[in-house]
């Protein structure tokens, strides 16, 4: 039992690495995707729109398989499974984040942009000091949803053979002829998400100093 828990803890670290690395790259990448989606240039915006449609319109598990196996079929080379997981998750989540960012940016009243313009702020200053802080406050609930989903989606990494938490629990279940390890894994996910939810609550409270 102790050994099983240790194994699961170790696998949880893999899940957490997937989780954190995905956020690290997908959060900023989403900004560029959102900007591309809102670009005045119709070629750019329709290309980015197509990318978002594909990412949202096909299963993540399929994207994962594609990202890992496509280079093998095209170039005849294979690469690290863990890297493939990160790449697949980042491009998938960046698309979702981008749409949340876009919704947030477009919900900022036009007057905020106009006031910034009249006061002589540069575009960059307006984006970083006027728009972004207000967007963050507005998108927190939607981002909370997405980030919680990401914690659970890390379980899909086993599809291409990465030994994350759920894979280890499933293997243990098969060995012991018991579903108990899987339920224990469920508790692990629940605890991780309790932390995520709590952090988002805290952030929301912190930004409640204005309406």
């Amino acid at each position: 039992m102790v050994q099983l828990l240790l194994q699961m803890l170790e696998a949880t670290l893999t899940s957490l690495r997937i989780f954190l690395l995905t956020l690290l790259f997908a959060l900023p990448l989403g900004i560029f995707v959102a900007r591309g989606r809102m670009a005045k240039n119709s070629i750019v915006s329709s290309l980015v729109n197509a990318y978002i449609m594909i990412m949202r319109g096909t299963p993540l598990i399929l994207q994962l398989i594609f990202v890992y196996f496509a280079p093998y079929y095209i170039f005849g080379t294979s690469y690290d499974r863990f890297t493939a997981v990160i790449v697949a998750y980042v491009i998938n989540y960046a698309a979702y984040f981008a749409e949340i960012y876009r919704g947030g940016i477009q919900s900022i009243p036009k007057g905020q942009f106009e006031a910034s313009e009249v006061l002589g702020f540069s575009r960059i200053h307006t984006f970083t000091h006027v728009v972004t802080p207000q967007v963050i406050k507005r998108i927190i609930p939607a981002m909370g949803n997405e980030v919680i989903t990401l914690v659970k989606d890390t379980a899909l990494a086993q599809t291409i053979g990465v030994a994350e938490l759920f894979r280890v629990a499933q293997n243990a279940s098969a060995r012991q002829f018991s579903t108990m390890p899987i339920f224990i894994a469920g508790v692990f996910y629940f605890v991780m998400n309790a932390f995520v939810a709590k952090s988002f609550d805290k952030l929301e409270t912190k930004l409640n100093y204005y309406n």
Partner: peptide, 28 residues
Amino acid sequence: HFGLVFQNFNLFPHMSVMRNITEAPVHV
């Protein structure tokens, strides 16, 4: 050369009164 006062104020809601006023003098 122009200052503009809007019908619906358009203050920056996430900045204090002080920062609303000082933001442009400091950064512009």
